[in-house]
Design a protein around this nucleic acid. Structure first.
Length: 666
DNA sequence: ATGCTATCCAAATGGTCTGG
DNA sequence: CCAGACCATTTGGATAGCAT
């Protein structure tokens, strides 16, 4: 607390002043971090309620910083619209005339006309003359202006394509600004099971406590926008607080929010009746918590749009991952105390609350596909909010939360294997030996037999050998290319319903993205052994007829993975036809099975597209020795029964055939 | 007892990212 | 801009061990 003497010394000139005063101290100029120092000063001001007048330097520093921030957002980030920018700048100027100069200087870096506009404003409204030499307005300036006008227009017109849009029609967005309407509204809400909640307020740049300007409540087919400013005037203030509190305490209504803690905090300061709202709220589901603590372990929940990409943060990101399109956040920083609000503000506000419902519905729909339950996944948050009541120490809280997560996960996964994997997820470096046992644990008898032709698999880069063998056994198998990211497995797995086969550390990376039964960690080193291991684990039945039943031809090296023909349908060509085609002296079209073959060019006349047999790849000496050829009707690759098949059946695949029966081995 | 160092832990701080 | 949450890192105080 000896810092207290230091605190009142304002920023930069103060630091040197301070240093000169305390000769004995070991303070060095360059070591004083100005940012931290200002921060500390601000904190102390707040803590001891020091009046603004006593700290002019800090105050003006903050105002000019805020102005700069506004300009930055307006001109660089471009997420404030003209009207809001004007409103907020005027607020600051009103509060502190001294910022005027800085405003003009800052604006000059971006837009001369804009600076000019404000010089005029400051002169007319505040009676101050800013002496700057404005550069001559050059001819291109009007064009410049138009550009901005376009941009503003574009923002205010409802942007058509890339953003997520509000589902309920606009006339179901209902503005509430009278006590009667408000009571009726709350009455209506009480009948709902599920509501989406959000609040907006105007950004403040000083320490004035923010007040909620708008409260949005979304129900299935409507969104209520509560004009808190009007309602506060019209109501006995207490009554409004009690109405709110009633809603929050109502156990039978599930409230959905995103970072709703912050909103509740503002409400609790604003309404006496809501003082303990954070502690007393019932049945609140906060998607912020879900987003960061639950979703990372259950990424399959957003497989529709997410596809193994890195997780995006913020409500915006969550909506994009789960619902497919991002929100348009450009109104977020706008003036929520303006009346009436813009059309785009209204839509933004309604959407912010309504999207929470849609998130919930989407998860509700997704979760059962993976054997999970939404409420089970979301439940821990209800306690999560409650648990923060005391400052009893972050560590405890963190620990408690972690165990809650574990609880949620284990109730979802529900077996012993799961608890082992949870240990791993929880962070402690468990060594691979343990994990290996983890993989081979489940009772094989519990897994139904899968015929090889129905086993669908995606194989990671380091198991390409295994992939090749699996294909030869008739398994539909996608193989990743070397330079391809492992995460591509996840995308393919989710999109094409394939089991991921991988090994090593990658397994740990990938397994959180897919349901546990969709990924397997291969232990064996040699492809043949691996084949046995995998087929054994998944109880895959390989018949002799499966072997070489699929076309093995590599069509092309796709950017992502090897594109294999993988077709199982062949045209059977007797030797005599093959010979005449190779000689090239026949004009006949013959019917072979389900297909017709134009022998002039060796083209299969198929249903979809005509395919040319790859005659060039048949060595001349082969035909006399073989009686039947098989042409892949998809890519035209030609096969014949050579020694290959026999060798394979009696050789490398011997142990795999009929494994289902003799599954004792391994 | 005194001084020095090593060790541990909670509190403080910095950084980043969200919300408005 | 500010507040808050989270996470990693730092800090400073308390303590124990050792030598003086």
């Amino acid at each position: 607390m000896h810092h207290r003497q230091k605190k009142e010394v304002p920023a930069d000139p103060g630091i040197s002043c301070l240093c000169s005063i305390s000769r004995s101290s070991r303070i060095q100029h360059e070591k004083v971090n100005q940012k931290s120092f200002t921060k500390l000063a601000n904190r102390l001001v707040k803590k001891y309620d020091i009046p603004q007048a006593a700290i002019p330097n800090l105050t003006s520093k903050r105002s000019t910083a805020f102005i700069r921030h506004l300009v930055h957002r307006r001109f660089n980030l471009k997420d404030i619209q003209l009207q809001d920018f004007d409103d907020m700048v005027k607020d600051v100027l009103k509060e502190d005339h001294a910022t005027a100069n800085d405003l003009i200087q800052t604006l000059l870096e971006y837009s001369v006309p804009e600076a000019k506009k404000w010089v005029d404003y400051i002169f007319e409204e505040l009676g101050l003359i800013i002496s700057v030499n404005l550069p001559e307005l050059s001819p291109d300036v009007p064009a410049n202006n138009d550009e901005w006008a376009d941009w503003d227009a574009e923002c205010s017109s409802s942007t058509p394509v890339p953003y997520y849009t509000l589902k309920p029609p606009v006339d179901q967005v209902i503005w509430i600004d009278t006590p009667e309407a408000c009571r009726e509204c709350f009455h209506r809400i009480e009948q709902e099971r599920l509501v989406g909640l959000d609040a907006e307020w105007k950004v403040v740049f000083d320490y004035a406590p923010p007040r909620v300007a708008l409260l949005q409540v979304a129900i299935t087919d409507q969104v209520f926008l509560l004009d808190m400013i009007a309602l506060c005037d019209a109501f006995q203030k207490q009554d409004l607080g009690f109405l709110l509190m009633n809603l929050m305490q109502n156990e039978s209504i599930i409230k959905l929010g995103y970072g709703f803690d912050a909103d509740m905090k503002v409400l609790s300061k604003q309404f006496q009746a809501c003082k303990s709202i954070t502690d007393e709220v019932k049945n609140l589901i906060d998607f912020d918590y879900f987003h960061h603590s639950v979703l990372p372990n259950h990424l399959y929940l957003c497989c529709n749009h997410h596809n193994g990409m890195p997780i995006k943060s913020s409500l915006n990101g969550l909506v994009e991952m789960i619902l497919g399109q991002p929100l348009d956040k450009r109104e977020q920083f706008s003036n929520w105390e303006r009346r009436p609000l813009n059309q785009s503000q209204l839509v933004y506000a309604a959407l912010d609350a309504y999207c929470l419902l849609e998130l919930f519905w989407s998860l509700e729909e997704q979760a059962p596909n993976f054997g999970a339950d939404v409420l089970e996944l979301l439940k821990p948050l209800k306690q999560g909010v409650k648990a923060k009541s005391n400052k009893s120490g972050r560590r405890k809280k963190a620990k408690a939360q972690r165990s809650r997560i574990q609880g949620a996960i284990s109730s979802y996964l529900q077996d012993q294997e799961a608890s082992a994997s949870i240990d791993a997820i929880a962070g402690d470096a468990k060594c691979s030996t343990k994990e290996e046992s983890l993989c081979s644990l489940p009772a094989r008898s519990s897994i139904p037999v899968t015929p090889a032709s129905q086993f669908r698999v995606v194989v990671d880069t380091m198991l390409q050998g295994l992939g090749k063998h699996m294909r030869q056994c008739g398994v539909d198998c996608a193989v990743l290319d070397n330079k391809q990211d492992h995460a591509e497995c996840v995308r393919l797995s989710l999109k094409e319903d394939r089991v991921i086969l991988t090994r090593g550390k990658v397994f740990d990376q990938l397994r959180q993205y897919v349901p546990k039964e969709r990924i397997y960690k291969v232990v064996e080193e040699k492809p043949i052994k691996q084949l046995q291991e995998v087929f054994g684990f998944f109880n895959v039945d390989v018949e002799e007829s499966d072997i070489f039943s699929l076309c093995q031809h590599v069509i092309r090296k796709h950017e992502m993975y090897l594109q294999i023909c993988n077709n199982g349908d062949f045209i059977e060509v007797p030797t005599e036809f093959m010979v005449t085609m190779l000689d090239g002296n026949s004009r006949d079209v013959v019917t072979l099975g389900n297909y017709r073959l134009d022998m002039t060019s060796g083209t299969i006349l198929g249903a979809s597209a005509n395919v040319r047999l790859q005659l060039d790849h048949v060595p001349r000496e082969v035909p006399p020795r073989v009686c039947l050829f098989y042409g892949c009707v998809s890519c035209g690759k030609i096969y014949w029964d050579g020694s290959h098949l026999g060798r394979a059946v009696s050789g490398k695949f011997r142990d795999i055939l009929g494994m289902r029966v003799t599954q004792s081995q391994y």
